[in-house]
Design a protein around this nucleic acid. Structure first.
Lengths: 200, 200
DNA sequence: ATGAAACGTGAATCAATGTTCATATTATGT
DNA sequence: ACATAATATGAACATTGATTCACGTTTCAT
């Protein structure tokens, strides 16, 4: 679980950060396999061997970034939801959508990194989504107990929601490089709330 | 657009098929980069150089498979829908869901192949989904004109639906290696129709 | 039947790249 | 200030794996 050897000095911290920033940028742009260690260290402004002071190998750099990004995203969503603890499930979901998309706008390489992971480390890939799913499920169950949400299978619903957000983000941030406006968030919330059919 | 040099004899056709089958299996299991030309030809029972009779390089094998699979999937869905031309949009969607999941069960490497493509050929990756999206949009617009479906943005809705199906398939066929039963299809249709909220 | 085109071969080539390591420099606690 | 640990270096190494190619074999139209 510890892909990285943490530095013990200020200088080391800065160096590690430079390496991680460079790696994120390059993995994001070119993917895991097309990114060379030499490129990462060059962009970071350090020598090739320096990377191996902190990471045992290339794959660990990748897995560390994935871990880190998933962690930060979950934390951001958790904090935003805590700020509005009494909101209904659908209101909490609106909050999560906003945080998710604003996070992804800044780190849109997250997707690309995560989806490439299925070939770098299939277990890590699965864990990434299962961890998100677990968090969702407990909220869904709560909302079902309170009578807000209908009795759909929570596991299924968690993957439905992750799928929606992932693909909408793919369209906006990867394919179109466009912004995701408030109207889109509104439509997402409406779809999740009431589906596609016109209410009679 | 032509990644493959088509054979002109019966023997050639068989050889190409053997190569494609082997490649699909290996790309599916191990991904693009971890699959060696040598492995593909060995599994196909031909010499290394034979692959280069049909493909200019490794990437072309990959892109050809992706093209082919996407083509077959769209065709399968199209045919299934045509068999029930008068059905409502939501009934047509139920049909598409069934066909999609049964296709994916057989070729579940499709996902993995397609998602890896974003690093092999970003344009091909985008085209893959945009082509599906286009098909959806015309149906959505029709269903909106007939008053069946509410006025959500068709582009957004097409990506929402693709996201749902992709992630549910990911969960079932890649993570759990479980079947996808009729009840799940029913819940998907219900969610797409009416969303998560309890109707009052 | 026959020759030209199509197909098949697999060892050799050659470029690419992750990783190591002996050595140098810098930081930190006492 | 000194010793020790931590950090940094980058040329050299070792491996890997896609691609080539000169030479056989098979197919098929005439």
């Amino acid at each position: 679980m510890d892909y990285v050897k943490l530095p013990k000095t200020k200088r080391g911290e800065q160096t590690l950060k430079k390496i991680c920033d460079a790696a994120e940028e390059l993995f994001t742009k070119n993917g895991y396999y097309a990114t060379e260690i030499h490129e990462i260290t060059q962009k970071a402004g350090v020598a090739t061997g320096t990377l191996y002071v902190y990471f045992p190998d290339k794959m660990s750099v990748f897995l560390h970034l994935m871990d880190d990004l998933g962690h930060k995203l979950r934390k951001a969503i958790r904090l935003a939801k805590l700020a509005e603890p009494s909101a209904s499930m659908i209101e909490q979901e609106r909050i999560a959508i906003r945080v998710f998309f604003s996070f992804v706008r800044e780190h849109f390489g997250l997707f690309r990194i995560v989806w490439q992971a299925q070939f770098v480390d299939a277990e890590a890939f699965k864990n990434y989504y299962e961890r998100f799913s677990k968090g969702y499920i407990s909220e869904i169950v709560k909302a079902q107990e309170s009578g807000e949400v209908r009795g759909l299978d929570p596991v299924l619903l968690s993957y439905i929601l992750m799928g929606i957000y992932s693909f909408v983000a793919l369209k906006h941030f990867v394919f179109d490089e466009s912004e995701l406006d408030e109207d889109t968030v509104e439509q997402l919330v409406e779809f999740i709330s009431h589906g596609v059919l016109k209410t009679i």
